[in-house]
Design a protein around this nucleic acid. Structure first.
Lengths: 333, 333
DNA sequence: CTGAAAGCGCTTACAG
DNA sequence: CTGAAAGCGCTTACAG
């Protein structure tokens, strides 16, 4: 069934049917009614391939969310959308599988839909290196920096991950901890891991401590099980640790479990700091001290960048504030 | 840039270019090489609208995941895919926003892609009532039952939510609890809530207790904050409760926090049972006793149903086993 | 092995 | 306000 069937059955031409479907002007009330009626009766759905193939007009700003399950992104979308809407722009969001090549998806989408702009929530900055030429629309990477990519149309807005990690670890040092372990990510695990690790290293060094990666660091994926296993290994190897910095809340949550399983308490025996301020750190027992990214600002600034880009502005790379939120998982020693 | 540019630049016709792109036979090695070279050089990406508009062949089985962040679904996809792959079928998964109309998305997808089959992980069964006529492909709803929809091509595979909830609450009763509160979902909140609530009600009644919805039940969304608030209200209203059954692990996790905030301990003062067996219940302190759905079987059976459906079998509605996993959140009183 | 041509189902000037 | 026609960028018989 296609638009011609609707045309035939309603007694109008396909052009009129098309205009009726799309709510365009130049269709009599009578025709519109009749056409909608026939469509409903036949259960007709337009073919999106044909439609987008033909339409040269731009589609709404496309938002690609990669870290499915990353609560932070949900909190970014609201403000992002709000800011865009007040300038009359809509968004359509697409969820991508973890680890997928966002840049490829974006290139394909660009050709298929011609979005006015693109927003990437998560995703590995590296993939933009190879597959991003085709997209001409203004785009912004949120949460990772695209600065060194130096692409003309790819902006980024992010917190200073290095400084945030530095603050997190400094917080521990200032509370008297000197034997501090680090878990999560990996040493060559992409931008975010590297930056947070470097921040931790810096903070330690500023307090006269050299981070011994062999002994006091344990890499892992950003999942609960990862944090659990990694922290377990770390604790078994270095039982004199009085504090642990986890590169993400999921990791911290798993680590908390590993600590408790060894008969230790947080913060009684081991202090713990996470990163991200997800519901995991907000509701766990004890609540976990962590780094909060300002989701509202992340969203609003990303929207601004897109809007400016649509107006011809070139790519920018912004830093947005973060904040150490102190909860119940750190004690002074 | 389109396929004609590649044809022109490579010195071949568009037909040959198309065949080369799609890895079809009847292209000389020489031509293939040259064409691929030109494509790479120009960074050409085919237009998917045009491609799918033209292609009448069927596309791989489409998997729609709705409860983004529902870990269970991740665990279902693996076995689902494995089972399909051994019959030579691939899958392509699409993540949908929470609360979106999966049936509409499916109808649109059907027209655009002609998938060989469709699998729905999550999603409200009700929406299939209105927007599912267009899809002729065999489809299966996983996690909710589509039995009463009685659609000829929509199967379902699910656990018996009512029985599972009954077991969960019976477990509490058998441990001596008689003042049991229930949190999560809502009384008219769709199939899953209703079933689990009914199961709880039944178990209580079997032990001579009538569930007082006014006093001992508190509805909430399936998010941590919901469980936290709802359990808080419940506890304040009925401080004599010795156990709480949460309709989902996220709710249980929030409830755990609310309980602790009142100076009570789990399971010392209040016992707690969740539902879903997510990482939340696995890693929380204490670990939460919960209902585990057999994700492996859910996936494998769903695959079988699709495969059978492709072979002409009509819709079936299967129940898959679940299991109460006892952990650290329930004590005998 | 290759190319020219038809056509997938729409939208959009254009003419009436 | 309406219809006939061109064309979006591909794929696929068909003929060579």
């Amino acid at each position: 069934m296609d638009i011609r069937d609707i045309a035939a059955k309603s007694g109008y031409g396909v052009g009129t049917v098309s205009r009726a479907i799309n709510g365009q002007p130049n269709v009599s009330e009578r025709a519109r009614e009749r056409i909608l009626e026939v469509m409903a009766e036949l259960g007709y759905e337009p073919n999106v391939n044909a439609r987008y193939l033909k339409m040269r007009t731009q589609t709404p700003v496309a938002v690609f969310v990669t870290g499915v399950g990353n609560r932070l992104f949900d909190d970014v979308i609201g403000p992002l959308q709000a800011e865009l809407v007040r300038e009359g722009e809509d968004i359509v969001v697409t969820y991508l599988e973890d680890g997928s090549n966002v840049a490829r998806a974006a290139a394909e989408y660009q050709l298929a839909r011609h979005p006015k702009g693109m927003v990437f929530l998560g995703g590995d900055p590296e993939c933009f290196r190879t597959s991003f030429q085709e997209v001409g629309a203004p785009a912004v990477l949120v949460t990772s920096s695209a600065e060194e990519l130096a692409l003309p149309n790819l902006s980024s807005v992010t917190i200073d991950n290095e400084a945030a990690a530095r603050d997190a670890v400094a917080h521990l040092c200032e509370r008297g901890h000197r034997r501090i372990g680090v878990v999560g990510g990996s040493r060559d695990g992409g931008q975010i891991s590297s930056l947070r690790l470097r921040g931790a290293e810096d903070a330690l060094r500023a307090h006269g401590i050299e981070l011994d990666y062999e002994r006091d660091y344990e890499p892992c994926d950003f999942i609960e099980a990862g944090g659990f296993e990694a922290a377990g290994r770390l604790l078994d190897r270095a039982p004199d640790l009085t504090a642990v910095f986890a590169l993400g809340d999921v990791v911290a949550f798993g680590a908390l479990r590993a600590i408790c399983d060894r008969g230790l308490t947080v913060p009684g025996d081991v202090s713990l700091v996470g990163f991200d301020d997800t519901s995991l750190s907000q509701y766990s027992v004890p609540r976990i001290t962590t780094i909060r990214q300002n989701a509202e600002l992340l969203g609003r600034r990303a929207a601004r960048v897109i809007l400016d880009g649509m107006g011809g502005a070139s790519a920018t790379h912004e830093l947005v504030p973060y904040e150490l939120v102190e909860r119940e998982s750190v004690r002074t020693v």
